[in-house]
Nucleic acid binder design. Sequence first.
RNA 1: CGGGACGUGGCUCAGUCUGGUAGAGCACAGCGUUCGGGACGCUGGGGUCGGAGGUUCGAAUCCUCUCGUCCCGACCA
Length: 577
Amino acid sequence: MRYSQMLLPTLKENPSEAEVASHRLLLRGGFIRRLTAGVYAYLPLGLATIRKVEQIVREEMNRAGAQEVLLPIVQPADLWIESGRWTKYGPELLRFKDRHNRESCLGPTHEEVITDLVRMNVHSYRNLPLNLYQIQTKFRDEIRPRFGLMRGREFIMKDGYSFDLAEEGANLTYQKMYDAYHRIFARCGLAFRAVEADTGTIGGSFSHEFMVLAATGEDTIVICRAAGCGYAANLEKAAGPASEAPKEPADMLPLEKVETPGQRKVAAVIAFLGIAPSQLVKTMVYLADGKPVAVLVRGDHEVQDVKLKNLLGAVDVVLADDQQIFEATGVPSGYLGPVGLKILVVADREVAVMRNVVIGGGEKNYHFRNANLERDFRVEKFADLRQVTATDRCPCCGGELEFPKGIEVGHIFKLGTSYSQAMKATYLDKDGQEKFFVMGCYGIGVSRIVAAAIEQNHDQDGIIFPLPLAPFKVVVLNLSPNDEKISGAAEAIYQGLLAAGTEVLIDDRDERPGSKFKDADLVGIPFRVTVGKGFTADGTVEVRRRAGATVAVPLADTVALILAEIDREMSALAGQS
RNA sequence: CGGGACGUGGCUCAGUCUGGUAGAGCACAGCGUUCGGGACGCUGGGGUCGGAGGUUCGAAUCCUCUCGUCCCGACCA
């Protein structure tokens, strides 16, 4: 491609709408332009990058035995009503009516559509297992789209769905996808980690997320430091260690009500009473689908609402505000305790082994000392409800934990029969028995990978694309388009690379050298060949790896050298998987 | 939805407090000089000041409403 003919509007200044690196650089580099909140147009360079990701995804999905399809983006409400998600999915599902007043929606995901397709067309065990995927635009009406391609409302996703005869087969398929995902992200040249995850709205029995490690990631993940352990989980999911302290029959001291005027926060109460935060139990009130629930956790722990949601089987849990707390319990916030509470009380399992604790007094300006479970208050259910902290140990091996940030670029779920049952999707087995398909679903955020790759690989000058994702592998800078000798050399390299099938951009614009260097750095093309004064002087051109060293190379050797470098690096990445 | 900030040429922003003929830099077009890390000079084109209503002799500026965008929390690839 010739730069002079390409729509590649780079920006010298930082757009005010962009905060994070990937968003800023994608805008500045002329990859994308915003149309409206969370909706972007892909310019030629942006599309070329998306295509690189798609191609890797496609190759690995096909290699793993999946087949590509393309499903409709507009979906009828009926299907969603059938699966039960028309009511469950919430406002992210963009709904509308067509001219016949039929309820419809824009597909945020395609479980319903694919299940419908398969139940209509697959009836026999002979046609199973089946693994179908598509690469397509999704729409989710996110509450707050942000960070450019990182969290758009419209985005490109690879979503795949598997249909198996039974559990064992489904587990095998899941493992295949897990392996394929590893190959995909490795081939993209990304530093990533697979972690155990919560199953979220899509539902199902277990799941893994694939996280690109980057300081700006929106998710916190928990990783065990111990060599050979390999425990890694999303913070939402990470198991709190089982309570160590035995349920010792420690001497229960008599319950004592103490005055704590104005002491509402944990920090204030412990300071006032001169105790450690681990000797206090705080009582949090949540509204689970609108119904109040009291949740007990140790003073230095935090409630993990995803765990709470799962325990209660709720669609939605939110922390109650002061007024809601008072309405539900009759106690002002800050002094609430489990004694005499009329609403459902659940607790983190750590609470079960605590003795002689401080709790809210159930009236303004009072707390209890030496409260004890069973004797003084009741708990309906115990479960792991708290967020793991830095002082916790690995639930697998007891090793130390670290908490890096990550960007979720892939998520695989084992769905089981939840959709096939809801939508009556069945096949006949060998014995003529009607059975439900055992399903799995597998997503990759294609456009998000581009953003994640940039978050992980950039410097103050611009993007540093991993070779496999770069829209062009090489950029040739012709520093003097008016000089025949220099232009001839630049053209020779350009043509040589083109002939070898390499994606190459030649900067043939009538611009000053400075602009060409700046733009080349900005858009992050891995190899840069500069043809200028050096060539006039001694017949060499400069080859430079983005953010690397420059070497002078005789014109005749240039193409071969670059091709060899590219080949070496690409096969290293492919082999590593 | 709650909290915060902001809408002025294509981009970045000044001007708004204290009402009085819409500005700068970049980008764009022409000419000239320049030419290895975003050059310089001269000339030129381009703006319903987000929109509507109001106050006023007069509104980018004050008031009301409205739309949009960005940032912080709950959703997710």
